[in-house]
Design a protein around this nucleic acid. Sequence first.
DNA 1: CGAACCCAAGTTGTGTACATCGTGGCGGCA
DNA 2: TGCCGCCACGATGTACACAACTTGGGTTCG
Lengths: 217, 217
Amino acid sequence: MSAEARHQRLYAELRGRICLLDYPPGTKLGEEALAAEFGVSRTPVRRVLARLSDEGLVEARHGVGTLVTDVDARELGQVYALREELAQLSGTMTPRPVTDAVLSELRTLIAEGAKLADLPDARAFARLNMAYFSFTQRLIGNDALAEVSERLYFRTARIWLQAIAELDLDREIAAFREEMRQVADALRSGDMPAVGMIRRAHISMSFHRLKAALPAG
Amino acid sequence: MSAEARHQRLYAELRGRICLLDYPPGTKLGEEALAAEFGVSRTPVRRVLARLSDEGLVEARHGVGTLVTDVDARELGQVYALREELAQLSGTMTPRPVTDAVLSELRTLIAEGAKLADLPDARAFARLNMAYFSFTQRLIGNDALAEVSERLYFRTARIWLQAIAELDLDREIAAFREEMRQVADALRSGDMPAVGMIRRAHISMSFHRLKAALPAG
DNA sequence: CGAACCCAAGTTGTGTACATCGTGGCGGCA
DNA sequence: TGCCGCCACGATGTACACAACTTGGGTTCG
């Protein structure tokens, strides 16, 4: 395997573990331990940790360790506020055409949502939410906007998951399914601005519910 | 000096050289050469190049070298389109209060602009433009928005500089001074949304002039 | 004469030993 | 007994040697 491909795999794996709370905030990611697990030396591991550090998911402290960062309420609010605006923009800025394959993929996600509602599970919810996010990313025609949106999503995803675990999981899943249904309706009529507005509305409502679970209220 | 501070200095230095066209697109940045120049080993240099690579300013090819990237017309248009939207947002999303120190700083920049008009120079123009951009960044109250804006600005700054060197430099400087004067007016009345709109308008007009200098366009 | 092959030089990627730094615990002293 | 300082340990940061890879030129064979 090429070095670049290895890097991407390692990066995706660690980012996934962080955002799925396999590594909750405060966890120490030992370079030696990770190197041993993935069968490489510290060097490529450090390359990945440096990237995660630049993106704010971890923080390397000399002599201490590389720790998964936490996100304070202020930063969380700022990221969500910006994500709202960007979700709306994704509906108006040169969206990609809606194909049958796109609608089919969303139907599959909605079906997964139905199964999730029958058997609620926080981790499975988080995975499906990421898959849905990945789906919405493919509707964006502006690559720069997609890149920025992804960066912001993964920046706070773990905090969102942490909070909903303490909230009403059923309610969150219901709201998520409702968003997918509404987006599907808008997509069928090819109304991308409406898709953006719907997503913005749900990000806003999700954040309002999320604030209730934060320590500072 | 701490490792983190060294990293930041090296990063800022190399990013500056790339964006001021000391290293035009296609330039090979040899790790060994940079290490020798800055009196360190390849390791910290590689750490900085990795970050620049993640941000799309350079591209490392195994067995070839680390090359300064170019930006095609499509990507340039997408970045400018997003920068327009973000500039407008920066005026409406929780802007910072306008202090006397802020107005004073802008007056200084405007004075520098007057000197530049007397003695036009592409490189000095680029430096002043960066200083003005840095100034506008400090008006943004949303840290996430500021971070994203900075990333996008530096992503295309070198292409902009490359293009205006082939355009009418006097005209570009005049447009730049006009933007600063208009922003100063809006700031004096505390109208931040107007500041955002003015900046958006000038980004749009700048891009339209810039397109004339592109190969495809 | 041309084309295919090979190889040598130069570059980035990796592994590893060592330097540097922060922390917690242990021991001595008041 | 409590507190202060020292130090050993483990972590990240750095330097360097080597592996892997691309490229270009020289050489040889058809």
